[in-house]
């Protein structure tokens, strides 16, 4: 069975009911995806499947056949949100961080998310260290910088700043 993992085609011989989480961690040796509960509650195992966030502990690998799977390693450490998690101390112990970053990417389509948008987007990810505030600061800053950054389309930027 084949799927695309972080942009590259991979083939797996795993059992079709194997958890995507285990295939990523044990077969593909990508350990940035973490297991916190095995019940889809903590979000530490969040990955993107065709751009949508899922808990990889609840996904049979058979169901990602032909799909695009993105893990934290797929961001290559170059995503601006990763830097902002560092700057704003959005990571303390760090175990929830990969899942948090990937879940936050859903806000990529939202040019100016409100705090409530951020809260809702991250409601499926538990963090026991930060109380979440530093994570909000990182995410909001990322959207604000993306909104005013050099890559923002000029007409959009001007429309928003009227």
């Amino acid at each position: 069975m084949r799927f695309t993992l972080n942009g590259l085609p991979v083939e797996t011989n795993a059992h079709p009911m194997a958890r995507l989480l285990d295939v990523l961690r044990e077969e593909q040796r990508l350990t940035g995806t973490k297991e916190g509960c095995g019940e889809g509650e903590c979000g530490a195992c969040t990955v993107l499947v065709d751009g949508q966030s899922v808990c990889s502990c609840l996904v049979p690998v058979a169901q990602v056949e032909g799909a695009r799977v993105t893990t934290i390693e797929g961001l290559h450490g170059t995503h601006p949100l990763q830097k902002l998690f560092m700057d704003e101390v959005g990571a303390q112990c760090g175990i929830c961080t990969p899942g948090m970053v990937l879940a936050a990417l859903a806000l990529e389509d939202n040019p100016v998310p409100t705090l409530d948008d951020v809260r809702t987007a991250l409601a499926g990810n538990l963090c026991r260290c930060t109380g979440y505030s530093a994570i909000y600061r990182a995410v909001l800053k990322w959207r604000a910088e993306a909104d005013s950054g050099p890559h923002a389309a000029p007409e959009q930027a001007s429309a928003r700043h009227k």
């Binding site: 889809g40 899922v54 859903a106 499926g124």
Partner: peptide, 12 residues
Amino acid sequence: ARLVGGVQIQNR
């Protein structure tokens, strides 16, 4: 639908 689990669960 908005109140079923988190986004990851709603997606699946």
